[in-house]
Amino acid sequence: MLVRHRLTTLLSCAGLSLMAACGDDATGFRDANVPLGVTTRGTTADVSGEWFVRATTPGNEDLQRVNILPERQGIPAVELVRRTCESNGDCEEVGEIWRAKPLGQHRWRIQSPQGDAARELWVVWVDEGFRTAAIGTPDGSYGWILDRAPTGGSDRVTAAQEILAFNGYDAAQLVTR
């Protein structure tokens, strides 16, 4: 069984152009031995707009929403909206626009406004109605489940968790809302 799994992984890495490079070690929150796929469903317009974060890997618990902006001031961008709280308990949501460089269908390299941080954003899966999406990155540094609504759609959220697990993510690490 292990030999067949290794052979399948090797063939997947060698033959599929929409896959990330395969490695030998687990990195971040996913096993790099498992190829990471990107959905071919829909267009950029279909995945654009506001998404609520319904689950995330540790380290992104303050992330509330992700807005995929196909064109902001002439360039693609992604807005990351985080909830920040003061020591006195006052909280607010603060959005930050990250420039996005398209890498292919449903894949971007996003860079912070200060230019000091970058990450890839891959749409691994999206449901037929473009209501729920599984987001990941080849290095496994983070994974998100996004939905068009802040509540509901538990069947789709479960499906997104299963898709992330299939793509090598440790679904037990996901912090759900």
Rank of each mutant, 00 (worst) to 15 (best):
D46V: 00
D24E: 14
E79F: 08
A100K: 12
E50F: 02
A118M: 03
A171D: 11
Q64P: 03
E96P: 08
R54V: 01
E93C: 01
A45D: 15
A100G: 08
Q161C: 12
S12C: 03
T57C: 06
F166W: 13
V66Q: 00
R156N: 02
F29H: 15
I145M: 03
R41P: 00
T27W: 06
L146V: 05
A171P: 01
A159R: 12
G42D: 07
G28D: 06
L11Y: 03
Y169D: 01
G140A: 11
E71A: 07
R99N: 11
R156C: 04
D25F: 06
T56F: 04
R177I: 06
R54T: 09
R4K: 04
R30A: 05
V94L: 14
L36C: 09
D46P: 05
L63T: 04
G37H: 08
D116A: 11
F29Y: 15
E71K: 07
V34T: 15
A55S: 10
V126E: 06
G37L: 09
R83A: 13
G95R: 07
T8M: 12
A117S: 13
Q105P: 03
F130D: 07
S141I: 03
N33Y: 07
R107M: 12
L80W: 05
Q114A: 15
Y142C: 07
W125Q: 10
R148V: 08
A14M: 14
G15E: 11
G15K: 10
D24K: 04
E162K: 11
G136P: 00
R4T: 10
D147N: 12
G42M: 04
W108Q: 01
C91H: 13
A134T: 00
H106Y: 08
G23M: 07
L80A: 08
T137C: 00
Q105C: 04
S112V: 00
I145Q: 05
G143Y: 03
G15H: 11
S48Q: 10
R4Q: 09
S87M: 15
W122L: 02
C13T: 08
A133Y: 00
V66F: 01
R156S: 11
L36E: 07
I68N: 00
V34C: 11
A21Y: 05
V78T: 06
A45C: 06
G89F: 12
V66M: 09
V157M: 09
E79Q: 13
D24A: 12
S12V: 06
